[in-house]
Simulated scan of single mutants.
Amino acid sequence: MTQGQFLPTKGAADSKWLVTQQWGPLGLLDCRQTCAVEDDEEPWVYTTEHTLGLFLSPRPLWISHRQASRSYTGFYNRGDLLITPVNTTLVTQSEGVVEMVQIRLQDAFLRQVAAETLGQNEDRVELMQAFQTRDPQIEAIARMLQAELRQAAAGSRLYVDSLANVLAVHLLRQHATARSPLPTYPGGLPPRQLRQVLDYLDAHLATEITLATLAELVDISPFHFSRLFKQSLGVSPYQYLLQQRIERAKRLLKQTDQPITTIALACGFNSHSHLGRKFRQLTGMTPKTFRLS
């Protein structure tokens, strides 16, 4: 296995890959490999991260797990989830072709979200172990992160930050030993704060923007900021940012003769092709076609 760009061999029964990405407090591993049962399996333990393993193999896969004092042996199906809390030793044996996405979420980030978003005592945050469980929301988030990884698109940090916050809150509400209701903040952002955020976004379209940076502008948690922003404008911060970048690209395409690659970089995209994908997604045409229309 090699680590790097995602380049599986289509149609090959023995194709395999392993690619990783780290976005702030959230890491992702996307892999496909052939496993054989071995007598002595190395134990795994993450001392700073919780791990969520989503199994995506098309055929059921025989797996034997041991987490601390608990164990499980059986067949994992596509969509089954393994949750391993921080500082929990995991020993795994399997036989066959395993295809999976593993999310790693920093424990410090989860505790911060617990305190800022749910008002929990961060020292009492503890996730529960889980073998072969199902969680449609975690599966959806994992697949969105996998798609983002495979596209290798820069300029999407705000999108990933939003997913990380949603994932953390979901874990705290559904998979923690102590659960708290989610506070509600009706009405959206106050007009002054909303204007402040929109002005910041407009001034920084060409740069990487994080959810934490936007939340700090109005002094609230990133998760609540996302919810209030969407209540105010009807779209998420990432969707709004993408719309504004495309609008700027439209103006530059019509009003200047700059190369499309130059326009892409000026609007926060990392390449001509990255702009092209997002431009077609929102307008139904390519930048070149739009310029000539």
Results as ranks from 00 to 15, higher is better:
A176L: 04
S180I: 06
G188N: 06
S180R: 13
P181Y: 08
H175Y: 11
A203R: 12
D199G: 01
S180N: 10
G188F: 00
V169S: 02
G188M: 02
P181L: 10
L171F: 00
H170R: 03
Y185W: 14
P191G: 05
Q193E: 15
H170F: 01
P186V: 06
Y185M: 11
R195K: 14
A176W: 08
T177V: 11
P191H: 05
Q174A: 08
Q174C: 09
G187K: 08
G188S: 06
L198W: 02
P191D: 13
P183Q: 11
T177R: 15
L205C: 03
L194F: 13
Y185L: 12
H170P: 01
G187Q: 10
D202R: 15
A206T: 01
L194Q: 10
V197W: 03
L194P: 04
T184I: 14
P191M: 07
P190R: 08
R192N: 12
R195F: 07
P183G: 10
H170Y: 06
P186L: 08
L189G: 08
L198Y: 01
H204F: 07
L189C: 05
T184A: 15
L189Q: 02
A176V: 09
D199K: 11
Q174E: 11
L171R: 02
H175T: 09
A176P: 00
V169A: 03
L182C: 11
L171D: 00
R192S: 12
D199W: 04
V197G: 05
A176N: 06
L189H: 01
P183H: 12
Q196H: 09
H175C: 09
H175E: 09
Y200M: 00
G188W: 00
A203H: 10
R173P: 00
R179E: 08
